[in-house]
Amino acid sequence: MPNETNLNRRHLMIGAGVLAATYAATPSLAADDTSETPLDLTGTSILITGTSSGFGRLGAEHYARLGAKVFATMRNLPRPEATELKELANAEGLDITVIEIDVTQDRQVKSGVKKALKAAGGKLDVLINNAGMALSGPIEAQDMQATQLIFDTNVFGPQRMMRAVLPAMRAAGGGQIFNVTSQLGRVIIPGFGQYSPTKFALEAMSEQLAYEVQPHGIEVTIIQPGGYPTKIWENQAKPTAALKSRLSDDMLAAYPQFTAGMGKVGSGGGESDPMDIPRAIARTIAMPKGSRPLRVALHPVARPQEMINKVSAQTQIAVLGKSPYGPSIKAVLD
């Protein structure tokens, strides 16, 4: 049996992927889908959070190259990543506007969305809630400072953004919201702090919103990446180290298998291609209105959440399908 201290997210996700392959069919939007035809997103306005790196940065470039008008948001401007993205847009003639938004700041969310709406003629077609963070360590070690920080980013941030864009989407009679959660928004690995709790919360909030806005012609899609090599592994080190410095020796000793590596810069995701996520989002945007899926699980190997997604949908329809909520629930899930 493997030593628990040597387990990491990549090993667990690969193992889970083998299990998933046994029970679940590959979805039409799986990462290994190479049957796509060239997409044209011309005329589509897209606002993305967290575009300084990772899925957000790759997505900003990808959607713009497909013709979209992209509003790439990030915090702490000016910063080198913003300058680099602007220079790339100028060099390639891409329609990318960089706007400062820290999703934990009410004022920045409101002002940033207002700027994007004005530049887009009062209507945003797509919101991609991509900004997020991670912290490691056992749940007992997650003090309220760390807990509030990660929930403010991963849960309250998307809520701020959705509340900012929804009035215009409702007025326009349509729109699309993507919330990037995680495989760990359905499957739990010990020692990942409040990451799974925040992603579980975002999963639930997204699904509830999908039912509620369906009559307004607005669609919600939850993107569930498995392990991918992005900067989340590097970026979690600093806030986790800060958390560790606040913990008592007794707390550290109580969970040695989970606290020993706290604050260290790690790596993960293997050799999977982070472009899987922007490509899947672009394909979903290009789908006919009313046909877009509620959830898209993405990873070339590990997609164990597909089993949970299937059972969850069946349960929702079984419990509420014949209730007054049934038409909206079936429209989202069928």
Rank of each mutant, 00 (worst) to 15 (best):
I101T: 00
L88C: 09
L94I: 05
T104V: 05
L124P: 04
D106E: 15
K86R: 15
A89M: 14
T83Y: 04
R107C: 08
K114L: 06
G122M: 10
I101L: 07
A116N: 08
A82M: 09
A120S: 15
G93L: 06
V126K: 02
N90F: 04
L85I: 07
K110M: 07
K123V: 13
K118G: 07
R79D: 04
A91E: 15
V109Y: 05
I101V: 14
L127G: 01
E92A: 10
V126M: 03
V126Q: 00
L88V: 00
T83V: 07
V126C: 02
D95E: 14
P80Y: 00
A120T: 11
E100G: 15
Q105A: 14
T83G: 08
K115I: 12
R107T: 13
V113P: 03
T104L: 07
T83S: 08
T104I: 04
E92R: 10
G112D: 10
G93N: 05
L94P: 02
S111V: 09
S111Y: 03
A82F: 09
D95L: 07
K114D: 13
K110A: 12
K118Y: 01
I101K: 04
E81K: 09
T104M: 12
D125T: 13
L85A: 03
P78T: 12
K115H: 09
T104W: 01
G121V: 10
A91S: 15
A116Y: 03
R79Y: 01
V109H: 07
K118P: 06
L85S: 00
V113N: 03
A120Y: 06
L117E: 09
V109W: 06
K114P: 02
K86W: 03
A119C: 08
A82I: 02
V98W: 02
K123G: 07
T97F: 04
D95P: 10
I101C: 08
K114Y: 01
A82D: 03
A82L: 06
D102P: 11
D125R: 12
I99T: 03
K115V: 12
L117S: 07
E87I: 00
A82P: 03
P80L: 01
K110F: 02
V98S: 08
G122E: 12
A119F: 03
K86D: 05
K86N: 15
K115L: 10
P78Q: 11
L88R: 05
A91D: 14
K123N: 12
Q108R: 11
L124Q: 09
L127F: 06
V103A: 04
A89V: 05
L77E: 15
P80V: 01
Q108A: 10
T104P: 05
T104C: 11
K114A: 14
K86Q: 15
I96L: 08
G122P: 14
V103T: 10
N90Y: 03
N90I: 02
V113I: 11
I99W: 07
G112C: 09
P78G: 13
D102L: 11
L117W: 04
L85P: 00
D102Q: 12
A120G: 13
V103L: 07
A119T: 03
E81R: 08
E81L: 06
T104S: 12
V126E: 00
E100W: 09
T83A: 06
Q105H: 10
L127Q: 00
P78I: 12
K110C: 05
K115F: 05
K114F: 02
